[in-house]
Amino acid sequence: MADTEKANQALDDLFAAARETPVPLPKHLATAIMNDALVARAENLVPAPKQNRQSRTRLRAGAWRQLMIAIGGLPALGGLAAACAVGVWVGLAPPSFLPDPAQLVGYSNSTSVPYTSYDLAVVLGEEVQ
């Protein structure tokens, strides 16, 4: 146990000595950083050229590609399309335990609905009570 404490103390002393001595930035690295910064600044100061039709088409294609990446690719887009299709199907032909939205809105000639008004707020308010 004492051997590991001595080894840890020696390692801590080495780390403390390394922290105390600063490492200077090499001259060539500082020069390269400043050159990159000056080039980036010059690129930002130059006005952007007018876009022609081809570049606008490329931007549009890039936007679609970015949207596909954000969604998650073609498999995720397929799942999204399937979920939309199910939502439309349930909206148009709801299961028996859900009210028919066409009857609630008033597009049905059926007299089987026991409400005198087809106001959605009234119908939902009566169902809650």
Rank of each mutant, 00 (worst) to 15 (best):
A81H: 12
D36E: 14
V113N: 15
S108C: 12
R41Y: 04
P26H: 00
L124Q: 07
M34D: 13
A17P: 07
Q9M: 01
S108G: 07
P94H: 02
S96Y: 01
T116R: 06
L124A: 12
Y107M: 12
A18Y: 07
I33A: 13
G91D: 13
N35I: 11
R65A: 14
N52V: 01
G91N: 10
A30V: 00
A76Q: 02
N35E: 15
E20I: 12
N109Y: 11
F97W: 03
E127C: 04
L77A: 10
G62K: 01
E127V: 13
V122P: 04
L25Q: 13
G72R: 06
R56N: 02
R53A: 04
A32H: 05
Q9V: 06
A42E: 11
L120Y: 03
L80W: 08
A2S: 15
R58E: 11
I69N: 06
A121E: 09
A16T: 12
S110R: 05
V86F: 08
S112V: 12
F15A: 12
E126I: 05
A42Q: 06
V23T: 13
A32M: 10
L59W: 14
R60I: 07
R41D: 10
Q129A: 15
A85H: 03
V90E: 06
S55R: 09
P26L: 01
T21E: 05
D100Y: 06
A32L: 12
P22E: 03
Q103M: 04
A76G: 02
V123G: 00
R19T: 13
Q9L: 08
A42S: 13
A93L: 13
D36S: 15
T116D: 05
I33S: 12
A30D: 02
M34A: 14
A61L: 08
E43V: 01
M34L: 14
G79E: 03
P26N: 06
V122L: 09
L29K: 05
P26Q: 01
Q54S: 06
F97I: 05
K27W: 08
G79S: 09
V46P: 01
V39E: 02
G106A: 13
L80P: 00
K27T: 09
R53D: 09
M68G: 14
N44Q: 14
R56L: 11
K50L: 12
A82I: 04
L120Q: 11
E127S: 09
N109H: 11
V90F: 05
L77V: 14
D13G: 08
A2H: 04
M68T: 15
L120K: 06
R65N: 15
R58Y: 05
R60P: 03
A82Y: 11
T21C: 05
V90W: 04
V122I: 14
S108V: 03
T4F: 15
G72M: 07
N44P: 09
L98H: 05
L25N: 13
V122M: 07
D119R: 07
P99E: 00
V123T: 03
S55N: 00
